[in-house]
Amino acid sequence: MDWSQFGSFAARYLPQLWNGMLVTIAVAALAAPTAVAIGVVLTVPRVAGWRLLSGFVRAYIEVMRNTPLLVQMYLLFFGLPILGIFWDEITCGVLAVSLQHAAFLSELIRSGIAAVSPKQWEAGQAIGMRRWAVFRQIILPQAAIKVMAPVSNQLIVLVKDTSLVSAIGVLDLTLSGKVIIERSGASFEVFILVAALYLILTSVIGAGFRISEARFTRRLG
């Protein structure tokens, strides 16, 4: 590879890739909090012991975890219009990514809560605390410490999975790269740039999560 030519190639096409990266960031910024919120909602029936709702949640989690995200995205994008619902590409992409990752996040959150010793519940209730107060003041902070690292990893996977929105026409970083390849024919160079930009994005997010985790742990410690 002629690195001088690669440098001029990168300088020429980086602005276009940067515009695609901004779309990727926007999709991830919408999908991540949505996935976390849905994941928390899915966790409630199982933690609370609501049998009927827990059964529905378990079925949902199994379906979402065991079917490809791309297929789910296609079902939303091409299936909703059949029902008379017309959502744009970004909305369908964000929803598909959120719904699948919410299933994984729900399992992580539930396992974190389950990992806290039952004696913590007993100790809190023994000193006269209500069950909700025990959960909020004792169980939840300990569970949060346990799940911060795996939840952070899951959200990084979510960011990478946003590349699939290119399959339904969202001009994100991946699709921007494909457009450049069609125009220039330089597939190897473009994929290097795209991979580098994804690496930078996920590395920054990962560093932010690690800093947040360290601060949260010190605060509770």
Rank of each mutant, 00 (worst) to 15 (best):
I145Q: 14
V47N: 05
S163K: 04
E122A: 14
F191M: 14
A102G: 07
Q5N: 15
Y13P: 01
R110T: 11
D161M: 04
V134E: 09
V41F: 14
L17D: 03
A167C: 10
V44R: 06
L105Y: 00
I211S: 05
F56W: 14
A115K: 03
L70M: 13
M129N: 03
F56G: 13
I127H: 03
M64V: 06
L164P: 02
I61G: 09
S152K: 01
T162P: 11
Q120W: 06
T67Y: 04
L193E: 04
A167N: 12
D88I: 01
G93N: 00
A26V: 03
R58L: 12
F216V: 10
G177P: 00
E107W: 02
F216E: 11
F191H: 13
Q154L: 06
A31M: 05
G49N: 06
L199T: 13
V41G: 02
I192M: 12
Q5Y: 09
F78G: 11
T24L: 04
A123D: 01
Q100C: 06
Q154R: 11
M73L: 14
R110I: 05
S117V: 03
F191N: 13
M64D: 04
L201I: 01
I156F: 00
A144E: 10
W50V: 15
A195Y: 07
K119R: 15
Y198P: 05
T174A: 13
L17N: 00
L14Y: 12
L22E: 01
S106Q: 07
I61R: 02
I139T: 01
W18A: 15
P81Y: 08
M148H: 02
M73D: 07
I113N: 02
V151E: 10
K178G: 11
E89K: 12
I211T: 12
A37K: 09
R210N: 12
S166H: 05
P45L: 12
S187P: 02
A32G: 05
W3P: 01
P118C: 08
R183F: 07
E107N: 06
V57S: 01
I85H: 01
R51I: 08
M1Q: 10
G128A: 05
L52P: 01
S203I: 00
L69D: 10
A11I: 00
S184E: 12
Q100T: 09
A37N: 09
G39A: 08
I113A: 05
L171S: 13
D172T: 04
G7H: 04
A29E: 00
A11R: 11
W132I: 12
